[in-house]
Design a protein around this nucleic acid. Structure first.
Length: 262
DNA sequence: ATGGTTGATGGTCAA
């Protein structure tokens, strides 16, 4: 199974780029975040025309929104909600004998202080709740893929400057600690770092707020694919489609591909 | 330290 995760930042605006991702990466499953579309306006006909007959989506007006597009039958869909909100940040599809999760962790605002910044507090709470739930719901024998924009870059090599980003939301010690706790809850295997050495720099996001995203390569690895230990030996390859950041009218995130043996 | 850009929306808010 070839699985792509991508924060598309509006599926309607960037549908032509989604078609390009489908054509170039030939995924069997695509997990999307920030679809930014309500369910009644989701482009179901267009997705099916791309070769994905089986669709799950969970969206709201203007913000957030997750989706899973599949060439293989989706047997069941679930949409957990966290922090007593209906934020459309989590979608689960049962595909064959495996669960695929599309997750969009709150970005957390600009100030890395939960007392001063409710958005940061929400991000931390979201991570704590998800961690408790994953730990209580799954075991190492579960067949689960967690894919999405987790909005945290855990390793020093996941950011362009570890020192300069220590107090920047996405790379603060408290966030990294909570993300590591979430990964350890089952535990999950980091599929990207399974193939790409942790010593090597690896980014999946480059800010829009730079006139030239390639200048000094100031990126971060915010998008992740994790698998349960039961799937570890099935991992075949992983790839970040860095080129997609240079496409016309790009998302600030690029697609990440992980290939698993069936 | 600050500001920079993009998207949905229709004034700003979120990222």
């Amino acid at each position: 199974m070839r699985l792509v995760t991508w924060n598309i930042n509006s599926i309607r605006l960037r549908f032509p780029l989604l078609a390009r991702v489908a054509e170039e990466l030939k995924p069997d499953v695509i997990c999307l975040q920030e679809t930014k579309v309500t369910d009644d306006l989701f482009p179901t006909v267009e997705c099916r025309a791309l070769g994905f007959p089986y669709l799950g989506f969970h969206g709201m007006k203007g913000y957030n929104g997750v989706a899973i597009l599949s060439k293989r039958p989706i047997d069941a869909l679930r949409m957990p909600s966290w922090c007593e909100r209906t934020d459309c940040r989590h979608l689960i599809a049962h595909i064959g004998n495996t669960e695929v999760h599309s997750v969009y962790v709150p970005a957390g605002g600009d100030i890395p202080d939960p007392d001063a910044n409710p958005k940061f507090a929400h991000k931390l709470d979201f991570l704590r709740q998800l961690t408790a739930w994953y730990g209580a719901t799954y075991t190492p024998d579960s067949r689960v893929v967690v894919a999405g924009d987790l909005n945290i870059a855990p390793l020093e090599t996941d950011v362009w400057s570890h020192k300069q980003l220590l107090s920047v939301v996405s790379h603060t010690p408290i966030e990294v600690e909570l993300l590591n706790a979430m990964q350890g809850s089952v535990p999950f295997v980091d599929a990207l770092r399974h193939f790409i050495p942790p010593a090597e720099r690896l980014f999946t996001w480059w800010s829009y707020r730079s006139p030239d995203w390639t200048k000094n390569d100031r990126g971060r690895r915010l998008d992740h694919v994790w698998v349960t230990p039961a799937l570890k030996d099935s991992l075949r390859s992983a790839q970040v489609l860095r080129d997609a950041r240079a496409w016309t009218q790009p998302s600030d995130h690029v697609p990440v591909l992980v290939e698993l043996a069936d």
